[in-house]
Design a protein around this nucleic acid. Structure first.
Lengths: 323, 323
DNA sequence: CATAAAAATAACAACGTTGTTATGTGAAAA
DNA sequence: TTTTCACATAACAACGTTGTTATTTTTATG
């Protein structure tokens, strides 16, 4: 049997309502008694009953994260970071890997204060009474909830510009190009536009997938290119990791022979065999923004706005000026 | 504002206690009124308030799954399957990716009825009042909670025997050998013992890791072996996937030139380039057993026992009799 | 020292359920 | 026709909190 405020009240010789106030640090109870009660509560190992609180407050201070496509590992880092970001707030986070509609039911049952949805496919999620924030859905539909996303196109343009400034003119893009995935399309289009702006001719190598091996095998096509690139932009962490290894196996040195810059700004980039220069919204920033967005949506009645986050370039050892 | 049983009562012209009974299908209320109340409840879109229920029942019918090492993707399949297995029960599942002690606090706050812990390192988790079941911890320590695990060693022995029966005598094991990870050690030891029993000489190739690329590169050592194996046992799904590709790139046909069998019994094995013969506890079975174990632990006061599940061999196209 | 004002504490209703106890109603038995 | 007894329904306490209102105690004021 768990200890309740009534038990504490008995022990401390006060009424239970006083205990409640003391525990909530109300100014209505004298400092002395407050201390006494707190001490007793501690001794007895009191833990507030969430259900009871919830019943009167109609608040749980819990946010549910819906992550239906658990096998896309890139998101795992983001989940971990979001979870960490919540630690600094008074909210805690729970996770569901069920399909969106089922997960929504579960969370509704729990009466979470808000939800975050990782929605890949761009279709709009019907929003009921619980505040919702989505990550990474395409921006065209006008959903009722705010969408947080990274500016993928801008990131690619920036990558191109960065390599250009280093003196590179033959810049290739290796990523998943022939796909319906809007996220991937934004990247390749960003690259194309960036190249056109600088009057360079784009060279794309399609990976036909997003896994390590897809980047690895894409490099097979390198030899048959008419002009050899001096720099490569990798479409994602996994792809770039595959590219890096493929280059190494061909004794092509990075960055001496080819500069390599990767999309995705995650800590793992630092610890790769060649620490990787990368471009993208830092995952910690992304996490923080998402967390702030839900909390804002929960606590403020002002309409929340969708947010396109700007990428950041982190320079490491995989890129160098053209000799 | 959500609709409560009192709202329904008013609408249906009965007392709210009658509504409660009707909704719980109590025999104490007449069939006619029961139907009427159910209809009204449906029309008004009634959803029971979990907090209120919980307050009186002291039950949530929710199980918490603690998954601290989210980046080990192999477990993702298991999580998904456990989540699915819960659908057939009256319990639902929530997930936490926090470290064990923090996750336990969160779940305690929620008053989940039970917990499942994915604990890699073998250290014992202090168990407080909430029933707990662990998956995959080493078995030596005598924890107070039941541990569900697969018999990895047995699996390997069975794999060896299977290949032996197909006529193979040169059977190599490719996996992470030089490691402190007990799970990996159990596998390699199982392989060794299996070979010794059949009076064959074991050939191990260390991957020094568990990723795709580790299996892929391990095959580099194939050429330098004194006797060429006619069959290979891969230590995990990822490793075997790497092995398969490395073999293909060397124009070594599977299964014509080399038979390949993989540890891990997951659906993905079926859809590999060469559908893979595999050995291991089917992930659906594992999930089901874990779910049953927690539920048993929650609902019965009889002590639950730890469980070592026996592996199952699924024959596919990656293995063949030696010509 | 009496009294008003302020401060501290106690009492109680409410949140939405469930389970127990009390009340009313119609049919069978006297 | 009255009494008894199922049966159906209503009333109410309880779960562990919070917030409001009521009461007591302390302090300041004349």
């Amino acid at each position: 049997m768990n200890v309740t405020i009534k038990d504490i009240a008995k022990e401390a010789n006060v009424s239970y309502s006083t205990v409640s106030k003391a525990l909530n640090n109300s100014p209505l109870v004298k400092e002395g008694t407050k201390q006494k009660i707190l001490k007793v509560a501690n001794q007895m190992g009191y833990r507030p009953n969430l259900a009871a609180k919830q019943l009167v407050n109609k608040k749980t201070e819990v946010v549910g994260l819906i992550w239906p496509t658990i096998d896309r590992i890139v998101l795992a880092t983001l989940v971990t970071n979001i979870s960490k970001a919540f630690e600094a707030t008074r909210y805690s986070m729970i996770l569901s890997v069920d399909p969106i509609d089922i997960a929504k039911e579960t969370f509704k049952k729990f009466q979470v204060d808000g939800m975050i949805v990782f929605a890949e496919s761009g279709h709009i999620i019907p929003e009921d009474d619980i505040p919702l924030v989505a990550y990474g859905v395409e921006k065209k539909g006008n959903a009722s909830y705010p969408i947080i996303d990274a500016n993928h196109g801008q990131a690619m343009k920036q990558a191109v510009q960065y390599l250009y400034d280093l003196g590179h003119r033959q810049i290739a893009y290796v990523g998943h190009i022939d796909t319906a995935d809007t996220l991937q399309l934004e990247k390749s289009e960003g690259y194309q536009k960036g190249m056109e702006t600088l009057e360079l001719s784009p060279v794309c190598m399609d990976t036909n997938g997003l896994d390590w091996v897809d980047g690895y095998t894409a490099i097979d096509g390198l030899a048959s290119l008419s002009t050899q690139p001096t720099a490569i932009i990798g479409g994602s962490y996994d792809i770039s990791a595959g590219i890096l290894r493929a280059l190494q196996e061909r004794n092509i040195r990075v960055p001496e022979d080819i500069s390599l810059i990767s999309y995705d700004n995650i800590p793992k980039m630092e610890t790769m065999e060649v620490p990787m220069t990368c471009i993208g919204v830092p995952v910690e920033v992304l996490a923080e923004e998402i967390v702030q967005a839900v909390i804002h949506r929960i606590e403020s009645d002002q309409p929340s706005q969708s947010l396109i986050l700007q990428p950041l370039l982190v320079e490491r050892q995989s890129t160098a000026a053209l000799k």
